[in-house]
């Protein structure tokens, strides 16, 4: 998880998309919950999702 935050930080710096930081950080934290509570994550086959 620490690696992910490091990579995210360099991504924000390179892309200058700091405004996305709160959105992504909250989502990653919620993602942790999803991982803990859900067995599998299956996505339908549409372009926007991938």
């Amino acid at each position: 998880m620490l690696d992910l935050f490091k990579e995210l930080w360099s991504y924000f710096r390179v892309r200058k998309k700091y405004w996305l930081a709160p959105v992504i950080v909250i989502m990653v934290l919620f993602g942790g919950l999803i991982v803990l509570t859900q067995g599998s994550a299956v996505a339908p086959f549409i372009y926007t999702i991938f």
């Binding site: 990579e7 926007t48 999702i49």
Partner: peptide, 19 residues
């Protein structure tokens, strides 16, 4: 709806693609 379906797979797997 599409967002709710997409996010689990991203937050569980695809964001962690390097690992």
């Amino acid at each position: 709806r599409s967002f709710a379906m997409a996010m689990p797979i991203w937050l569980k797997e695809k964001l962690f693609q390097k690992s």
